[in-house]
């Protein structure tokens, strides 16, 4: 450490140092504000253009303010059924994926067994595979079995469960790793059998992680376009596929309405969670 000698002269510059620290602290804050402005800019644009009154087929230039896109959100043929289908698939897929993922997380954290490394690797693999490859490979599979499983709801559901499972495992695992095993041992010492302990102690403690996994899977499923586009076939339209089709021929402002509606619901739910956590932290 040759710089120690040089640093000894430091106290003399301490006022300068303090000023510099002050400036730097605020530079970082200003930067963070700009960063958030950048993050939210496109959302602002989507929100603003949901009130636009476009003259042509495309919703790219501002022509006037109207509420009618919101009051007539389902006026575009096909948009309502697309939204409903997306929500249905996301609900079912997230429940199945979270159930499978929770069981796998329990096995991986609680047990030493042969093949653990391989299992971890196989779970990790879909996360490190680009979506287009997931979609393409499922398409080649479904092309071969299309008489048994026709393209549509079921192929999309199967695909969504597949790419959600790994996310669910990772989410639940994170909570299980930081889990105090003494609580379970205490329950067993008090005479609870394993199943009762699981129900009364383990499950309530990992419930937040299970809920987080459910919500994460739901969000990923509802938003997925690439894999869905490959496995949907030609007649099944989820909301992202609807937007993709629309982007080529016309972009009705109703697309923005639904985008912002999803956004508001999700952010409100998360805000509620943050407030709840803060309140709980204060009580503790």
């Amino acid at each position: 450490m040759t710089s120690v000698a040089a640093e000894i002269g430091r106290p003399r510059r301490s006022t300068l140092g303090a000023a510099w620290a002050y400036v730097r602290r605020h530079v970082l804050t200003v930067y963070a504000i700009l960063f958030f402005a950048y993050l939210l800019l496109p959302i602002g644009v989507v929100a603003a253009f949901s009130f636009n009154h476009p003259k042509g087929r495309f919703n790219f230039t501002w022509k006037g303010f109207t509420f009618s896109n919101w009051t007539h959100w389902n006026a575009i043929p096909g948009i309502q059924s697309a939204v409903v289908l997306s929500l249905e698939i996301a609900a079912v897929a997230s429940i199945i994926a979270t159930a499978l993922g929770t069981l796998m997380a329990l096995a991986l954290v609680r047990y030493g067994f042969r093949g653990r490394g391989t299992t971890n690797f196989i779970i990790f693999l879909p996360l490190s595979t680009p979506e287009i490859v997931l979609g393409a490979s499922l398409l080649t599979l479904f092309l071969h079995v299309s008489s048994a499983i026709p393209f549509g709801f079921w192929t999309i559901l199967i695909a969504h469960v597949m790419f959600c499972v790994s996310f669910a495992v990772v989410t639940v695992k994170a909570r299980l790793v930081g889990f105090d095993r003494h609580l379970e041992e205490a329950a067993m010492d008090l005479g609870a059998n394993e199943w009762t302990t699981f129900q009364k102690v383990t499950l309530p403690l990992i419930a937040p992680a299970i809920l987080a996994a459910l919500l994460l899977c739901f969000a990923i499923s509802v938003d997925d376009f690439v894999v869905t586009y490959f496995v949907a076939g030609t007649n099944t339209v989820t909301f992202p596929i609807f937007v993709w089709g629309a982007a080529r021929v016309a972009t009705p402002p109703q697309i923005n309405v639904i985008g912002i509606a999803f956004f508001v619901i999700a952010v409100t739910a998360m805000l509620g969670n943050v407030v709840l956590q803060n309140r709980r932290a204060k009580q503790a």
Partner: peptide, 17 residues
């Protein structure tokens, strides 16, 4: 939450924005 929030607007809609 602010970092994650924008990503609740569908990918394609964000890109169109």
């Amino acid at each position: 939450l602010f970092i994650v929030a924008p990503f609740f607007v569908t990918y394609l809609i964000r890109t169109l924005a």
